[in-house]
Design a binder for these strands. Structure first.
Lengths: 136, 136
DNA sequence: CTTGACCCTGTAGTCGACTACAGGGTCTAG
DNA sequence: CTAGACCCTGTAGTCGACTACAGGGTCAAG
């Protein structure tokens, strides 16, 4: 388990080499050192950091937000309150998106319900009618 | 209410001139004719079509899907079934996104609940702990 | 000592829905 | 007749998260 080259790390983390270099550009990861030829060399612990990134992504955090979380995570003096605040902002954001989607779903379901489907032409389609602004 | 130039139409529809030209590139709208100087001239009824586009967007349809809806809408021989199918596919899509967001929200809420906030440092933050893969 | 797998940098493309010019031509009010 | 508001085409930039080269250099196996 000595330093990993970027290709080995990519395989371990199930990410592409390009993605790793992209994360480096964003400041999310960095190689521990470079070889004489300029090759990136990573310590094996970086795999954990990449898992952190993936988990946070799955929870809806952007890479920019993940950079903040990683910075807080690396600072033992930082307050957990900041992490909590980021988390609660993300929850609020997600809840807003859910509400928007639910409004759409209800509107669409209401329209689909009254559409006779294959028994009618588009002329009598209430969905198109609504989009055209018929009634209200 | 004679032919509208693109600037007048933009004002009526509360869209930018650039957006209108963009919609034209996508095939969503077209000027009825061109003036001698090459100016786009729209019949006033185009405003309805733009409202259709905006309503469909608010319901979650992409501009590509809206192009399909408009094509169906303009073809009186087309079946309302196709419109209904597009609508139901969109409902399914939205429901999937809601489910994904709800899973995120619940995971985040569960983490936030156990975070002591400002009373602890990031070392003891269960949110960062979870992202780092502690437990499970 | 060569072949092929790896690595480097830097740039550009993808998706969707715009937005912003640059470098022209046209139209209208005073 | 001219200033300024309008219009044209064509190209490029924005956001986020990648993805895909091109044109090099490096390394290990046979």
């Amino acid at each position: 388990m000595h330093p990993l080259t970027i290709g080995k790390l990519a395989k371990q983390a199930d990410l592409s080499v390009e993605t790793l270099r992209y994360y480096e550009r964003l400041g999310l990861i960095a190689p521990q050192q470079r070889s004489e030829a300029g090759y990136r060399l990573y310590e094996p612990g970086i795999v954990r950091r990449l898992r952190f990134i993936r988990r946070a992504q799955a929870l809806g955090f952007s890479l920019g937000e993940i950079a903040e979380l990683l910075a807080l995570s690396g600072d033992p003096a930082a307050s957990a309150g900041e992490v909590k605040a980021l988390t609660q902002a993300k929850i609020a954001d997600i809840e807003q998106r859910i509400r928007d989607l639910e409004r759409m779903r209800e509107a669409l379901a209401g329209l689909a319900e009254h559409c006779p489907g294959h028994r009618a032409t588009t002329v009598d389609c209430p969905i198109l009618g609504a989009l055209n602004g018929e009634d209200q």
